[in-house]
């Protein structure tokens, strides 16, 4: 299968590859997919007081298109508010990376990873608010 130039570029020069401290209260972590399916994506966001995603990181087990989809996702969510990030659609990733139909699931997974990271962050925040002054997990 021939890859698009953008997929190859993300594969060779992944953006924001790595990890953030998942224990931090301002970090949300989303892990989606399963090893048996050949794709696991971890996407993390660091959110500031204005609800803006100021940093993002990914790690992906998966094909080149999965790596590129998650790399692109981190690029796109950076600098966005949580609400803006939630509007990102997998079809945007498909179009940007020129993914063939058989690779669309990679973009779906990246969209899921963003949502999972945001909901993890919000769960942490809500948990902290409800037990203000208490300890966080």
């Amino acid at each position: 299968m021939a890859y698009s130039e953008k997929v190859i570029d993300h594969y060779n020069n992944p953006r924001n590859m790595g990890s953030l401290e998942k224990e931090r209260l301002d970090v949300g972590t989303g892990i989606v997919g399963a090893p048996e399916c050949g794709d696991v994506m971890k996407l993390q966001i660091k959110v500031n007081d204005q609800n803006i995603i100021e940093d993002a990181r990914f790690k992906t087990f998966g094909c080149g298109s999965a790596i590129a989809s998650s790399s692109l996702a981190t690029e796109w969510v950076k600098g966005k508010t949580l609400d803006e990030a939630l509007t990102l659609k997998n079809t945007d990733i498909v179009n940007e990376l020129n993914l063939p139909p058989v690779k669309i699931h990679c973009s779906v997974l990246a969209e899921d990873a963003i949502k999972a990271a945001i909901s993890d962050y919000q769960r942490k925040r809500n948990g902290a608010a409800s037990q203000a002054g208490g300890h966080t997990t």
Binding site: M17, S19, A34, P35, V40, K59, T60, F61
Partner: peptide, 19 residues
């Protein structure tokens, strides 16, 4: 680049994870 490798290095048993 692999989240699985990172988890294993942290001592997580991949079989115990709810994917």
């Amino acid at each position: 680049m692999s989240p699985l490798y990172e988890m294993v290095k942290e001592g997580i048993d991949l079989k115990s994870v709810q994917w």
